[in-house]
Structures are given as structure tokens and as C-alpha cells.
């Protein structure tokens, strides 16, 4: 099967590979500890660990966009900030 029309590159393949790995990881986590660990955190509504992953990924996307829109600094800093944000979400949301 020829997928050249999808114009794959190594960075985008790594990006989607990471997302897929995260989803598989969440599946394993759910298998080991079923129920999704629901709790009410900072946002004052119930979130499961799947919700927290979604909030982390969506927030990270916007962190990167805001970074690109407002600064000329290296994008790795946005990734670092996103990781800190994701840890915060999983800890407090």
C-alpha cells in the first residue's frame, strides 16, 4: 500500500506515534486500575484520567500556538511548559 499521498515526515510520524503510545498507555493503566480514578479537582467538575489527558493535550496544543503567535523563542520551551502543565493537570484537576 502506497501512503506517499499522505506526505508523511519523521517528525509528524513521531508526533502521532507518541499520541498512539499515550492512548495504549492509558488503556494499560485502565486495565491495571479500572474505573478511571474520577475526582473533583481545581475545575470543580468530575474528571477521569482520560479527561485529564484530553485537557492536557488540548491545553498543550494551545500553549504551542500561543508560543508561536507571541514569541520567537525556541519551540522546545513550549514543549517543556506543556509537560509542566500536563503534570499540573494530572495532579490538581
Amino acid at each position: 500500500m502506497d501512503f506517499s499521498w499522505m506526505a508523511w515526515t519523521l517528525p509528524t510520524a513521531l508526533f502521532f506515534g507518541t499520541i498512539a503510545a499515550l492512548l495504549v498507555g492509558m488503556g494499560i493503566w485502565e486495565y491495571v486500575s479500572p474505573g478511571g480514578n474520577p475526582r473533583i479537582g481545581l475545575l470543580r467538575f468530575e474528571t477521569t484520567r482520560g479527561d485529564r489527558l484530553f485537557i492536557s493535550l488540548l491545553g498543550s496544543a494551545f500553549i504551542h500556538l500561543i508560543w508561536l503567535g507571541l514569541t520567537n523563542a525556541n519551540l522546545w520551551w513550549a514543549l517543556a511548559l506543556s509537560l509542566v502543565y500536563a503534570i499540573g493537570v494530572f495532579r490538581y484537576v
Partner: peptide, 25 residues
């Protein structure tokens, strides 16, 4: 996925793509 791939490249047709990083964003 295809749109994400296109968003980091440039093309002039003929299924040829050139890496452009995050410049389009």
C-alpha cells in the same frame, strides 16, 4: 493526519513536499 502532515510542508504539486517546520502556523 494528512492535514497535519501538509501543515509542516510546502508543495508545488506533483506529490512533492518540502519540509517547512512550523512556519505556516
Amino acid at each position: 493526519m494528512t492535514v497535519v502532515n501538509y501543515s509542516v510542508q510546502d508543495t508545488f504539486g506533483n506529490n512533492e513536499f518540502f519540509w517547512n517546520g512550523t512556519d505556516w502556523f
